[in-house]
Structure formats: structure tokens, C-alpha cells
């Protein structure tokens, strides 16, 4: 990282000059034709969905988040990943929506309590 003495001095000067010019947005600015900065208020959930009967991964399971629009489908190795808004907890729902294509499974859900950076879920679905 940029951290030599000269850089540190300049960053101190940045704080001094910025404060003395009474500009609230000097440190967090927006590019002229760009978006706002992303301050990263989200949370990463990943995991794997398997059959409770065979313990084999299940592809094509829809993984959605309680009251948010995000969703993902498990891939061929049963894995999913999803970013969600940062909240104290999330209800994650697992649904077999491709009828009998990859077997028939009952829906399941779980509550994820948000910790530091991410959560890994091991989910088992029962046969219908």
C-alpha cells in the first residue's frame, strides 16, 4: 500500500487542508459522470445444497433471500453464492423449482445471523 513517509505526510496535509476549506465532500467525492462510491453495506452468503437421502449435490435449486429480490441457483456442484443487504439476520429459502429434472425435493429455509464477513451454509433437502 502507498505508505512511505512522503505519502503519510501528504495524507496528513490532506486532512488539514480539507478541514480548513470547510468542504464536507472532499474526502468522499463522486466522479463527474460516475456513480456514488460504494461503501459496501452488504454481506456474502455462500454454501452448498445436497440431498438428505444421497448426500449428493443438487443443481438447479433456487436460493432466495426473505424480503429481498436477490436470488441464485445452485450450480452443477450444488453450490450457490449471493450478496445480501447487511442486516442482523436473513431468512434464506431453498426451493426446487425445476420439477423432476434434478429430482423432487421439499423446500427448506434457514436463518442466517450476520457475523463478520461471510457465512457458509450446508443445506440438506429431503425428498418429496
Amino acid at each position: 500500500m502507498k505508505a512511505n513517509f512522503k505519502d503519510r505526510k501528504r495524507k496528513v496535509l490532506r486532512a488539514i487542508y480539507g478541514t480548513l476549506s470547510f468542504s464536507t465532500a472532499l474526502f468522499v467525492f463522486q466522479a463527474c459522470y460516475g456513480t456514488d462510491k460504494d461503501f459496501g453495506a452488504d454481506y456474502y452468503i455462500k454454501g452448498i445444497v445436497k440431498s438428505k437421502t444421497t448426500n449428493l449435490p443438487i443443481p438447479g435449486i433456487k436460493v432466495s433471500v426473505g424480503n429481498q429480490p436477490q436470488y441464485d441457483y445452485t450450480d452443477n456442484s450444488g453450490q450457490f453464492r449471493i450478496y445480501v443487504s447487511r442486516a442482523s439476520e436473513h431468512k434464506i429459502v431453498f426451493e426446487d423449482i425445476d420439477s423432476a429434472k434434478n429430482g423432487n425435493y421439499l423446500p427448506n429455509d434457514t436463518i442466517v445471523r450476520v457475523s463478520n464477513d461471510s457465512t457458509f451454509l450446508n443445506i440438506l433437502l429431503s425428498d418429496k
Partner: peptide, 29 residues
């Protein structure tokens, strides 16, 4: 890296909204 998009919104629908959010999009204009 953080990421966002600048869009005219013409093709932005509930499906793409959900997929972009799930992929960690954090900003949009």
C-alpha cells in the same frame, strides 16, 4: 473491488436487478 453501473435504465427489470444485487453491485446512476 467495488463496482457500480451507469445506465439509461431501458433494459433494467426485476430480473437483472436481482442478479446484479446478488453479484454485489453497490452503486448505480
Amino acid at each position: 473491488f467495488r463496482w457500480g453501473i451507469v445506465t439509461n435504465g431501458y433494459r433494467y427489470n426485476s430480473d437483472i436487478h436481482a442478479r446484479l444485487l446478488a453479484a454485489g453491485m453497490g452503486a448505480i446512476t
